[in-house]
Amino acid sequence: MMKEKLEKLRAEALAEIDSANTLDNLNDLRVKLLGKKGELTALLKSMKEVPPEERPAFGQLVNDARAAIEEKLEAAKKKLSDRYIMERIKEETIDVTLPSDRRMIGHSHPNTIALDQVEEIFIGMGYEVVEGPEVEFDYYNFEALNIPANHPAKDEQDTFYINDKIVLRTQTSPVQVRVMERGKLPIRMIAPGRVFRSDEVDATHSPSFHQIEGMVIDKHITFADLKGTLAEFARKLFGEDTKVKFRPHHFPFTEPSAEMDVSCFKCGGKGCRFCKGEGWIEILGCGMVHPKVLKMSGIDPDEYSGFAFGIGLERITLLKYEIDDMRLLYENDLRFLNQF
């Protein structure tokens, strides 16, 4: 009698689950069947009507029925929720070509980006990045660099003067002297910074621009080391295929001195409008630190030697980004800055 009741309940329950078509229906069914006051629970409570010897077998039957119902409920629930998800997905299609909700990250100045690259290359080679004052003593800017008073180079550089002894530095080279004077050897340094010359503003001139000075002082430093270091730098900055050419030049604080050209990175050296048909682009000035400069800074030129170089940062920036007017760098139009 109880057994039939159970069978009937089980069959009806499974059928009801099959026909349930919402999660709420399923939940109601779960309560109705398996809840504290549910039908199956009620049946279990009426166990006492079953003869004691049949109770274990009946109990087993009830449990089987319960398991079957639960399993069926679970399956139905999964099926229903899958169907819901599929329905939701259908409604949720978006137009992926709509404009993005992009966060506006700001931009570094192109000079800074170029400087970062230069710094990274030299830091990788063991160079320390140092700085010196922009308003500088005449002594450091000229005299200690073997440019004595009345030297024509002083005129050539169109210096801004603060007073007899103080100038706006015309080059980053005074930092060389300041670092040498610290007396800590060996030295491998670069010194980026702002420099000033009294040039009127035009497409290729600015009274304020940037240089990156570099210097290595150690025992047995050779001109060959200078060539190797700067060739390596050029390859890292302009690409592995870059060739370099050193031409003799003159700077009062280096001897021998040179200018370095790199093969045009637009045409690879064949000659194009960018390199004015020459295939080469002038990049920097360099040389072996003049023994007089070493001596003035308290370094024994018989024991130590070194090389130094100076790079025009704007020159690198303008070349790198093919900017044709230097004024753009100081105008700060966001439409310009946002391109980098």
Binding site: E128, R188, D218
Partner: peptide, 14 residues
């Protein structure tokens, strides 16, 4: 003139 890199004591960049 040959192309070499400075030898000697290593320095820490930074």
């Amino acid at each position: 003139i040959p192309v070499t890199l400075p030898k000697g004591e290593a320095t820490m960049g930074g």
